[in-house]
C-alpha cells in the first residue's frame, strides 16, 4: 500500500454543472467526512488520484488549507463505462485506527479438479476485513491448485497477514470446484412460422377483459359488412 500526498482545494459551490466544469478542468470532486466533524467538499487533481489508485493506494495524504492529514479512500465512483473517475469519498482516520474495508480476492493456479471435468466457481470476489489503516492488504491471492472436484476454498483457508481479521463467517465459501450442469438439448422441431416466439407467458394480476372477446368484438362489424356485400356480388 502506498500513501501519496495530494493538494486539495475547498469547494464552496456544489451541483451537477459545477462538478462537470471541475472535471473538464482536470479536477476531481470529492467529499471528506467522518470523526463527528462537518463534511467538507473539496476537489483534487484528477490525474494524481488516478495514479494513486493505479498504485493500489487505500489512503491519501491530503494537503488541505495548509495542513497535511491522512484520509481513507472510502468510495470511488466511476462513470457508466467504469473507466473515468467522477467522485471520491474520503474518510478522516487516525493512522492507528482499525477500519473495516473490502479487499479483492484473486485466485491463483489451476485446480486439479479442472482436469476431471470440473469448473472453478468463485462465489466471493471481495472480503471485508478489519485491520489498522496502515496495513490494509492490496489483494489476497489464495492458491487453488490443490482443490479437487467438489472441494471448496473457505474463508478460514485464507492466509491473512498478522493483525488482519476477516469479518465474514469462517466457513463461508470463496470458491468451489464443481461439475458443470449438463445442458439438456431438446429435440428441435421444424419451425413453422414463428411457433417458438408466439408462445405466450402466463398473465398475472387483474385482467379487465379477455383479449379474445375484444378480438371477437372488433371482427363482428367486418363480418357483418362481408355478409351484407355477398348478396350484391351474386346479383
Amino acid at each position: 500500500m502506498e500513501t501519496l500526498t495530494i493538494k486539495a482545494e475547498p469547494r464552496m459551490t456544489s451541483g451537477t454543472r459545477i462538478s462537470r466544469a471541475l472535471r473538464a478542468a482536470g479536477r476531481l470532486p470529492a467529499v471528506i467526512y467522518g470523526h463527528g466533524e462537518a463534511p467538507e467538499s473539496v476537489s483534487l487533481a484528477h490525474h494524481e488520484v488516478e495514479v494513486a489508485l493505479a498504485h493500489g493506494a487505500r489512503t491519501l495524504q491530503v494537503d488541505l488549507n495548509g495542513g497535511v492529514k491522512p484520509y481513507l479512500i472510502k468510495q470511488v465512483q466511476y462513470d457508466h463505462l467504469g473507466t473515468n473517475l467522477i467522485h471520491l469519498d474520503l474518510s478522516r482516520v487516525d493512522l492507528h485506527e482499525r477500519v473495516k474495508v473490502r479487499v479483492g480476492i484473486e485466485l491463483r493456479g489451476v485446480p486439479k479438479g479442472i482436469h476431471d471435468g470440473g469448473v472453478l466457481d468463485q462465489q466471493m470476489a471481495q472480503i471485508e476485513v478489519e485491520c489498522v489503516v496502515t496495513e490494509i492488504p492490496d489483494t489476497f491471492h489464495p492458491v487453488v491448485t490443490h482443490l479437487a472436484l467438489g472441494d471448496s476454498l473457505l474463508v478460514k483457508d485464507l492466509q491473512l497477514p498478522p493483525g488482519v481479521v476477516a469479518m465474514a463467517d469462517s466457513n463461508e465459501r470463496i470458491a468451489t470446484v464443481r461439475l458443470l450442469a449438463v445442458e439438456v438439448v431438446a429435440p428441435v422441431a421444424p419451425i413453422e412460422g414463428e411457433a417458438a416466439t408466439t408462445a405466450e407467458p402466463e398473465r398475472i394480476g387483474r385482467i379487465r377483459k379477455d383479449d379474445e372477446e375484444v378480438a371477437a368484438e372488433t371482427k363482428k362489424p367486418e363480418a357483418k359488412k362481408a355478409e351484407a356485400k355477398k348478396p350484391d356480388a351474386k346479383k
Binding site: 417458438a196 416466439t197 408462445a199 405466450e200 407467458p201 402466463e202 398473465r203 398475472i204 394480476g205 383479449d211
Partner: peptide, 12 residues
C-alpha cells in the same frame, strides 16, 4: 428456445 418471461402483468 429463446428467452421470455414466464408470467407477465400485461401482454403488450
Amino acid at each position: 428456445m429463446a428467452l421470455m418471461p414466464k408470467r407477465v402483468k400485461w401482454r403488450k
